[in-house]
C-alpha cells in the first residue's frame, strides 16, 4: 500500500471508519465555523473550542469541476490529458453548509436534497509517491 498523508493537519480526523471534519464553536455566542478558527466571524470573540461536525447531511447545491485547476495553488501534477474531473458541492449539515469534493463516479446522478455522508479520498500524489487525502462527501446508497 502506498504511503498516505492528510492534505492539512487538523482538517479532519483520520484514520477512522467514520471520519469527521473539524470545526470550531465560539465560546461566547456558540457560532460554528469551518474550518476551525480562533476568532468568531459573528461576534468577534477570540476564544473558540474545537468540535467535530456532523458526518451526514443533504446536498444543497453542486457542480462538476471539468477543467484542471492551475498549479499552484492546486497540487495535482498529472498531465492535463490525465486530469480526472470531480464533483463539488455544498452539503447542508445541522451546523451549517460545508463545501466539499463529491466522491464517486463523475457521471453519477446528483440531485439537490439527496442524502450525503463524509468520506476520505486520495486526490493527488506527492513527488515521493505519497498519496494525498482530503475529505469528501458521497451519496448515501438508498
Amino acid at each position: 500500500m502506498k504511503p498516505q498523508r492528510c492534505v492539512a493537519q487538523g482538517l479532519f480526523e483520520w484514520p477512522s471508519d467514520e471520519p469527521t471534519v473539524s470545526g470550531s464553536r465560539c465560546d461566547s455566542c456558540s457560532f460554528v465555523t469551518f474550518p476551525a478558527q480562533d476568532a468568531c466571524p459573528r461576534c468577534g470573540a477570540v476564544a473558540t473550542t474545537p468540535i467535530q461536525l456532523a458526518r451526514t447531511g443533504t446536498l444543497w447545491t453542486w457542480t462538476r469541476q471539468r477543467f484542471q485547476p492551475k498549479n499552484p495553488p492546486y497540487i495535482g501534477t498529472e498531465p492535463a490529458s490525465e486530469f480526472q474531473p470531480y464533483g463539488v458541492g455544498f452539503i447542508e449539515l445541522p451546523e451549517g453548509r460545508i463545501e466539499a469534493r463529491i466522491a464517486g463516479d463523475i457521471d453519477q446522478e446528483l440531485r439537490i436534497g439527496m442524502p450525503m455522508e463524509l468520506t476520505v479520498v486520495p486526490f493527488a500524489t506527492d513527488a515521493d509517491g505519497t498519496e494525498v487525502l482530503t475529505y469528501a462527501f458521497r451519496p448515501i446508497e438508498s
Partner: peptide, 9 residues
C-alpha cells in the same frame, strides 16, 4: 487555508 487551493476548490 492553503488546503482549499491544494484540493482544487
Amino acid at each position: 487555508p492553503s488546503w482549499y487551493g491544494e484540493t482544487g476548490l
